[in-house]
Amino acid sequence: MNLERIMQIDRRIVYLFVAAGTILPIVFVIGLPVSITPPVQMAFDRMEDLDPGDVIMVSFDYGPSSAPENAPMADAALRHCFSKGIRVIVIALYPLGGLSEAVNELNKVVAEFPDLEYGVDYVNLGYKDGAQAAMRKMNENIHEVFPTDVRGTPISEIPLMREVRTYADLELCFSLATGIIGEWWANLVNAQFGLPVIVGPTAVSAPKYYAYLEAKQMAGLLGGLKGASEYERLVLDKYPDLERVYATPGLYTATKGMDVQSIVHLIMIAFILFGNVVYFTGKRRPRKAA
């Protein structure tokens, strides 16, 4: 076999393998098992410690560009809240599509729970620019930061918001985050105002959140699609009624996404091993000839 030719393999052939490894598990769902890691278990346990009727804030700090990772987290978190009777205040602090994601995911999940009442069990306060300033100000008065909800209703006319004026009236904040906004929940809101925070960041930014988790500045961490799939598993195990939702054909879930993720990782590992074997074999040959 000509090693030189193998070393010069067109990168587009690698792309074809990755494409096949991505599409096939989407069409033929495998259902690989999901193992639970401590950071996600901590997040789930912290949520389980809440009582029905407690109020939490869910902050959509991501946009469509990272939705495949963050949206399943948001769905699982909202389903967990509504299954347990936790009331939810939704906000969006990410400028490029945070609000669209908040509206879409909230509408999708609320439709699965027909008994929920807007303004009583949940509310969407919409988007606010200048995330860091908004997060600081909410410690003094959420009503001044969000004078109306996303529909333009004055906040004083929303029954749920009559009970909530500052972070002190909330039990927790669950941030689904891309970029730095999730960090601000840990190093600003938790550190300075003491509100417990769970963050579901994208995988790219997940490693740095471990420092906050270790320092107990966060109550839990869902790292990327893997974290989302673990949370989905925990919610499903605790609330088996949700199987009716997760079994919907064509519904994208983190657990299904992790099937694809695992297959593509295997393909990449195979290519890395193959490349190294060919490289080192080729390197040894000239020495033998010499």
Binding site: V18, I26, A203, V204, L225, V264
Partner: peptide, 27 residues
């Protein structure tokens, strides 16, 4: 070690984005 962990997570993140688009195209 920390760069390796960060790179592994980055790969996972990028593949997740590909999965999102492929799920849309297929489903």
């Amino acid at each position: 070690v920390s760069f390796g962990a960060a790179f592994g997570y980055t790969v996972m993140g990028r593949i997740s984005l590909l999965i999102g688009r492929m799920v849309f195209l297929v489903n």
